[in-house]
Design a protein around this nucleic acid. Structure first.
Lengths: 340, 340
DNA sequence: CGGTATCGGGATAACGTTATCTCAATCGGC
DNA sequence: GCCGATTGAGATAACGTTATCCCGATACCG
């Protein structure tokens, strides 16, 4: 017993099937689907029930092809599997604008990033939000020339003039530094990520400027490099030993905060610490971790707004927006220096 | 000065433009793009350079429409912004299969889930991987009837017979319980999530069975409910006080582990704890957190394999796969009961 | 009552691909 | 040197939408 004999077997019903079922012209079905007011009430009803009877679902591929617009934004981020609070704000903002965000991760790998972005381009997404890796982005040039709307988040796209929204890393480091100084610290160490990473470089540079402003040169106070447990623990050891040990530490990102706390757990308990990036575990430690937190919601909102602006008018001048960060004092950064 | 006069202004170049530029037929361009071997070397070269000159990029919308297949899988997960390790494995497995995964979050909201899934259906994704919420999924029935390939992850789809891959929650609880018993504990409490959530219900039920098997009825030992700090802390208080306080606690998911540890930090330090779900912070605590960890990679691989199988043959019988979990003993679950 | 707005709705042509069919040209075998 | 097989490449028709025209019917105005 065929339940729906009017649809060609094995295929999803199309507008043609609906039109045949309702006994109207193809164009009329389209009008009904798109709420065109010029269709009489009776025909609307006939079409509606034909749609229901056949379980017709419009095919967005054809729609997008015809319209030239997909109503879709792509988000190419470093990690979907990791904490990515900005993406949440991005999805919210896009949903509010009637757009769909489809995300894929680049795993911080040049090949994968390129593959993901190019796939999104070939799918003719209206715009792409990219958390770029540090490498060369020459492959973007023809895409941009062809009209791709793109906004970079968290890091700029190296060597290319594109919209981007960044956290105020410099102010964040300055705030953290000043906070520790205000609590009596004079010898402050910095544990940072590999300086080939843009944000790491920016934060490390800001820290160097703080040291210089304070008068001390003390390059022994700054330790940047790849995120490897041994490297980090060794850096902490050298920063906290010697004739002039640090009494406070600033960590350059959430992972470094974790590793630092892990090391402190077993080797020190009287060193102040201010971390960059907030995270769930910040309030798990004893004392709670004082952090410089970025404003995820503001970043997400700004990114979507910029992207929509550029889509609406590709000739918009390139803008670079810096979003303020805030210090969350929770205890770990408010202890006085230990007596030497 | 027009740089590319051969393309109609304002439009991206199409195969027609490339064909004109190269002086060949449209079909020949298609053949070159798809590496059809039946094109002579010289023409291939002409077409290739025309493609380069015009920066031609194929339009996947048209391709997908014509082919009837999109090479795209959708992932509708509860949270993109939260730790979602399974998604990583999913992306890996899909990439290895030449498929693209595009993810969107449902925020555990019925409306949003439906919107996301239906959008993916209208875009004719080849298959959808869904982390379903607990509510009714009637809206899926017509989609499934129309040939949607769907695999549920972590939770089954209520009231519908669809493929799903779940963690072995029962074995996980049993393992945790046995582990604590082996270390001398007799009074073990359970702090769980709202039992309207499938996994929470399954874990709580398994725990009740453990209690029963042990001989004790002790409903005072099991505390489930929504994830609210006060509720959890209150539950812990009542479990650890009274004439017969618990000497060990099993927590039902990562968030509950965090809250429990947070409470222990200030109120108790000699209670054993085994958490469900592994997470980065498990090795941050003192002692390190013993957990029942699910096998993210196995879940992701299995889900993609099942989805591809179903796409290849929609008539495949529905399968429900349970992936084993493993106990990661790290210290917090190996302490003996405190002297009473 | 004739002519022209007005409105509802149908035919048909895109959108940018790929697949089918056809045909011209080349090659080998006897 | 002729014929069938093979190869290379073009014309044309889909795929499922929406947009542009156009036409027939009703309503309205002079």
């Amino acid at each position: 017993m065929q339940e729906k004999p009017r649809t060609r077997k094995g295929r999803r019903p199309t507008m043609v099937d609906v039109a045949r079922e309702a006994g109207v012209a193809l164009r009329t079905v389209s009008r009904v689907v798109n709420d065109d007011a010029t269709v009489g009430a009776e025909l609307v009803e006939r079409v509606r029930s034909a749609i229901a009877a056949l379980d017709y679902r419009p095919d967005e591929r054809a729609r997008h092809l015809r319209l030239g617009v997909t109503g879709t934004l792509g988000a190419a981020v470093r990690q979907l599997s990791h904490v990515n609070p900005v993406l949440r704000a991005v999805e919210r903002a896009a949903r509010a604008a009637g757009l769909m965000v489809l995300a894929a991760s680049t795993e911080d790998d040049e090949k994968i990033e390129r593959h993901v972005v190019e796939s999104m381009c070939r799918r003719r997404f209206d715009g792409i939000l990219l958390e770029p890796i540090g490498a060369d982005h020459g492959y973007l040039v023809p895409e941009l020339a062809a009209g791709l709307s793109l906004v970079a988040v968290d890091r700029p796209v190296l060597g290319l003039e594109v919209d981007c929204v960044l956290s105020d890393n410099v102010a964040g480091i300055e705030t953290a530094f000043a906070h520790l100084v205000a609590h009596g610290h004079r010898r402050i160490a910095y544990i940072g990520d590999d300086e080939r990473i843009y944000t790491a470089q920016e934060r490390a540079t800001a820290f160097r400027a703080c040291l210089r402003a304070q008068g001390g040169a003390a390059d022994a106070m700054i330790h940047t490099g790849p995120i490897q447990r041994e490297r980090i623990h060794h850096a902490l050891e050298s920063a906290l030993s010697g004739p002039d040990p640090a009494t406070a530490v600033i960590t350059g990102n959430a992972t470094l905060s974790v590793e630092t706390v892990r090391w402190f757990r077993d080797h020190a308990d009287d060193v102040a610490i201010v971390g960059f990036d907030d995270s769930e575990l910040a309030t798990l430690l004893r004392p709670d971790l004082t952090v410089v937190a970025q404003d995820d919601a503001a970043i997400g909102d700004t990114a979507i707004t910029m992207l929509r602006t550029r889509i609406a008018d590709p000739a918009t001048p390139v803008r670079k927006v810096t979003v303020p960060v805030t210090l969350q004092a929770r205890g770990s950064g408010e202890t006085p220096p230990k007596r030497t």
